[in-house]
Design a protein around this nucleic acid. Structure first.
Lengths: 216, 216
DNA sequence: GTAATAGTGTCTCTCAGACACTATTTT
DNA sequence: AAAATAGTGTCTGAGAGACACTATTAC
């Protein structure tokens, strides 16, 4: 808090941009090939250097729009995960990385982004493999507990089937529909409607529709 | 991750330095009057500007030794809490604050530190009131779950009575001894000895001694 | 003895998970 | 009908919390 002359650390914000793809029935992580020199061409998490006075959330938006080509209003929610401070994590010199999550509305995806299932993320530049590995349990822990995160990922309305898919993607195993239904009954702001969605491609009973109440 | 010319943000590391005082029967937070200009003389969390390439833990040690006058080897464990990015939190200009916790061995305390019970922290400089308020539930959540944190706070050996005091300080209410004993039985690495400590000043049955096994 | 505190043993409630059985769809 | 999937109801086991009762100290 003093020491005026100390050369300060660079801070980058790296984003775990998550999107639920109902077709693929899984949660996808946005990665993009690097344009500039260190690791040029390799896949990496979208990240930017934090500008002076910039909010973390704003930097995350810049990263997602700039590196993934996703329009800013597709970002439904953001939040902090953890900070990585290994001095050698960037070959250009010591850089702090603050990892954030961002949930994206399944909207149009332009740009050169690739979307990778969370359980099959390809090797990434820098220490991004480690960031993904360390943050995955944090993300799984947020589901059904952190309402903005969950709502951001699933959208305003979703079916039991989609809830099962998202849970399986994040935690690694698929809950029984009955048990997940009880979990969802306890999530504040989430209500079970009486409507049923269209049946699934492979047949089966049509799943119930769930909806967030309150706003929208 | 590119944008070479962007002026980078300053990063400060602010530490919630915790120490259990068996006399006061409570967990104390280390605060110190500020020496330099913004808020000079006011109490604040110990904090330093993060040096280029410096690890967060090392910066936390610098803060605790420099601002609280506590010897570095008194720091038994450290860890991350959260990052605060309000651009106006420092009147000198936008500064990121990364909050860490540090546990201190009840050792000699030199310097101009003041120790304040966690539930009666005086008004602090900058946004440190907010940092303490936001981080307190995170600290309470770590107790009995995060072994380095818990062991760092209580030391290698402690009594049931001290465990009750620490729990009350962090969570705000005092558990039943019986229930806390069961909680502690489930903490990995913590074992109930057969020894009893000396009785307490006001009388009462002498409490059991607990010990961390494994290393020391 | 009384007050104060800790330890033992129950009891209840909530919650997660497993699963049998039923319901509703595609093929 | 068979396969696939979702929904209802039930059971069990872990864990938190409350509390009666006992144990051991200071006064």
């Amino acid at each position: 808090m003093d020491g005026q002359g100390i050369e300060s650390t660079l801070v980058s914000v790296d984003v775990l941009a998550l999107r639920f793809d109902p077709e693929a029935r899984s949660v996808l992580l946005g990665v993009a090939p690097r344009a500039a020199d260190p690791f040029a061409g390799d896949l990496a998490l979208p990240g930017v250097l934090l500008g002076r006075g910039e909010r973390l959330r704003d930097a995350a938006l810049r990263a997602v729009t700039g590196k993934l080509g996703v329009p800013g209003r597709a970002v439904t929610a953001t939040g902090q995960l953890a900070t990585f401070d290994e001095p050698s994590r960037d070959p250009r010199g010591p850089t702090l990385s603050i990892a954030l999550w961002a949930t994206l509305d399944p909207a149009r995806l332009e740009g050169s982004a690739e979307w990778s299932p969370l359980d099959a993320v390809p090797p990434l530049a820098f220490d991004h493999d480690r960031i993904v590995a360390d943050c995955r349990p944090l993300l799984a822990d947020r589901l059904w507990r952190d309402v903005p995160f969950t709502a951001g990922l699933l959208g305003p309305e979703f079916t039991t089937a989609q809830a099962l898919d998202v849970t399986e993607s994040l935690t690694g195993d698929r809950p029984y529909p009955a048990n997940l239904g009880r979990t969802m009954d306890r999530v504040p702001g989430l209500t079970r409607t009486t409507r049923h969605a269209a049946a699934l491609p492979k047949g089966g009973r049509p799943p119930l529709v769930w909806r967030w109440d309150g706003d929208r």
